[in-house]
């Protein structure tokens, strides 16, 4: 219990400091806050283009698609806000070119994975989260629907699972840096993989379908939660999703500790 309290206080303090920095450099915040929703606009244009040629996309109406994309955007931005900075820092830290050393992190009496991959917040993503939530509202309001409490619960539960998936994906890509030395392609890959989550899961068949719907279920970011919200998918699937996500999380954690062992902080 004491340990949990310690960790909680540490994260709270970190957040306080990040907010303090925000007020110290507001221009950086506003710049990021205004340019990042651009990509949401780009995707909205694509949705409009697609629906200019059809009114039904795999069972999704235009407003369903807005809800899908809004959910996706909100989760993606949440992951970025909480985990992106630290996960990105890992690149330099693993290579040993950072001033802030991975070695030092291993020394602290706190779980190394927790410490190395979280604790610094990218607050400008807040605008993106708001944009995503706004799109979901827009989609909900423009079409009459019946939604019960259980569906809403399932929706948020799937969002929680999706957050873990997005985190684990970047986490594994960064852990691979212990084994291969490669440039920012890890991050680009992370963003692209998420890209599969922008569309309904039925879009993907065969091998690709298994990959993005089950193995690395990025479709949990948008398609699956919306389908739960609209009651279009059986609750039994939740069990499968939970098992897959838990497996991914523990595998990635094992991989992290295994790589740390092999870790060479060799520098002449």
């Amino acid at each position: 219990m004491g340990r949990l309290r310690r960790i909680f206080r540490y994260y709270l303090l970190s957040l306080k400091f990040d907010v303090k920095t925000l007020f110290a450099y507001p221009e950086a915040f506003w710049m990021a806050a205004f340019t990042q929703p651009l990509w949401a606009i780009v995707q909205m244009i694509f949705i409009e283009t697609l629906y200019g040629q059809t009114s039904n996309f795999l069972g999704y109406s235009k407003y369903d698609s807005y809800m899908l994309y809004g959910t996706y955007k909100a989760i993606q931005s949440l992951a970025v806000m909480i985990f992106y900075l630290r996960l990105q820092d890992l690149t330099e830290e693993i290579r040993g070119t950072s001033q802030w050393s991975l070695d030092m992190m291993l020394l602290k009496p706190i779980d190394s994975q927790l410490f190395a991959t979280s604790g610094k917040y990218w607050l400008p993503e807040l605008t993106n989260i708001l944009v995503g939530a706004g799109m979901v509202m827009y989609g909900l309001v423009n079409e009459p629907r019946m939604i019960n409490g259980l569906q809403i619960l399932a929706y948020f539960y799937v969002l929680f699972l999706a957050l873990i998936v997005v985190y684990v994906l970047y986490f594994v890509l960064q852990t691979l840096l212990f084994w291969f030395d490669y440039l920012q392609v890890g991050e680009a890959f992370w963003i692209r993989m998420q890209g599969f989550g922008k569309y309904p899961r039925e879009l993907y068949h065969g091998g690709l379908g298994v990959l993005v719907n089950i193995a690395i279920p990025v479709t949990l970011m948008g398609s699956v939660p919306v389908e739960y919200l609209l009651g279009r998918i059986p609750y039994t699937m939740l069990a499968m999703y939970t098992v897959v996500v838990a497996a991914l999380f523990f595998l990635s954690r094992w991989f992290w500790f295994f790589s740390l062992k092999r870790y060479s902080s060799f520098s002449s």
Partner: peptide, 10 residues
């Protein structure tokens, strides 16, 4: 690839 798949559906 994803874009193409989307258009095929359309």
């Amino acid at each position: 690839v994803v874009m193409v798949l989307a258009w095929f559906v359309v």
